[in-house]
Simulated scan of single mutants.
Amino acid sequence: MLPEVTVTRYVTPLREGGSLPGLVEADDLRLYVLKFSGAGQGRKTLVAEVICGLLARRLGLRVPGLAQIRLDPVIGLGEPDPEVQGLLKSSGGLNLAMDFLSRAIGFDPLAYEVSAEEAGRVVWFDALINNVDRSWRNPNMLVHGGELCLIDHGASMIWHHNWRGAEASAAKPYDATDHALAPFGPDVAAAAAELAPRVTEELLLECAGEVPDEWLAGEPGFAGPDEVRRAYAATLLTRVQGLDQRITLGAGTEPSKSTGWRQGR
């Protein structure tokens, strides 16, 4: 199970994120980036973060550690920003936390070189989860300790917003021509050979099993959380078949200046 901590102090909003995540301190005296259950994208954003983040880690990609985090809305009483105060008040209970990576900097393709092998693994993984949010305009990658780290997967697995079309979505191609790592010549074939055999039903159910029941309960068309978990696993298992043949690559769009979200300074 994901570790569980409790918010003891709200530090500051991180306004670069679309869902206005917050930097908080928890009862283990560590800093976390908190993704709110009451944000506009709702609990499915948190589900995607958990499944995709854990899957990335199981496949050997670097992502921040994840935790369940309890929030008492009273934490927001002293917050002067009404938007932030509204988020805090609407997100009482269980939320999602990511390790705050101190001194991490936003990925800049003009300053950080990525091998074709690593680029291929990231592109292939993004194709698997149908991540449309890793362009050079918004790379959602950090460089921490000299290593590439993937963040922000809440917009992935778009099919879980319409489960009736999930099977059809699983077979769709993935356009990587605008991917942040396209200019590095991603070796997608090598990535597929290495990673595809590791994406098993057992692994996918293991990752989905870490999602708290309350984020899956009440999903229309499903008898309960375990049935929803099986649907996530089945869709991803279908998508992985022949995935590398459905990825469109190109030279990529060259950025002209530094981009990306800075998680830590």
Rank of each mutant, 00 (worst) to 15 (best):
M1R: 07
L2V: 10
P3Y: 01
V5A: 13
T6S: 15
R9G: 05
L14P: 11
L14M: 15
E16K: 03
E16W: 03
G17D: 05
G17E: 01
S19K: 10
P21N: 02
G22Y: 00
L23H: 09
E25M: 13
D27I: 09
D27S: 12
L29E: 14
R30F: 02
Y32Q: 09
L34H: 08
L34C: 11
F36K: 02
F36N: 04
A39E: 08
G40W: 09
G40Y: 06
G42W: 03
R43N: 06
K44D: 06
K44F: 10
T45A: 14
L46N: 07
L46G: 05
E49H: 12
E49Y: 12
V50C: 06
G53Q: 07
L54H: 11
A56H: 07
A56D: 01
L61I: 09
P64F: 05
L66T: 12
L66G: 13
L66P: 12
I69R: 06
D72Q: 11
G76A: 04
L77N: 13
G78L: 05
P80M: 02
D81G: 04
D81I: 08
P82K: 06
E83G: 07
K89V: 09
S91Y: 03
G92D: 02
L94P: 04
L96C: 06
A97D: 00
A97F: 00
D99A: 13
S102Y: 02
R103N: 02
A104P: 04
G106A: 15
L110P: 00
A111K: 13
Y112A: 07
E113S: 14
A116D: 01
E117L: 07
E118C: 01
R121M: 06
V122M: 02
V123Q: 00
F125N: 06
D126A: 12
D126V: 11
A127Q: 05
A127H: 11
A127G: 15
I129E: 02
N130K: 15
N131Q: 07
N131G: 11
R134E: 04
R134L: 09
S135G: 10
S135R: 13
W136P: 04
N138E: 10
N140A: 08
L148W: 02
L150W: 14
L150P: 14
D152F: 09
D152Y: 11
H153L: 11
S156D: 04
M157A: 10
I158K: 15
W159V: 07
H160R: 15
H161D: 13
H161L: 13
N162L: 13
R164H: 12
R164C: 04
G165P: 15
G165R: 14
A166F: 14
A168E: 12
S169K: 04
A171L: 15
K172G: 05
P173Y: 02
P173N: 08
D175S: 07
A176N: 12
D178W: 09
L181K: 08
A182S: 13
V188K: 04
A190K: 12
A191Q: 00
A193R: 13
A193S: 09
A196I: 00
L204N: 03
E206I: 03
G209V: 00
E210F: 08
P212R: 00
W215T: 08
L216I: 04
P220C: 09
R229C: 06
R229V: 08
R229P: 03
R230L: 04
R230T: 03
G242V: 01
G242D: 03
D244I: 00
T248F: 13
L249D: 01
T253W: 02
T253H: 10
P255L: 05
P255Y: 08
K257S: 14
K257R: 05
T259H: 10
R262M: 04
G264R: 08
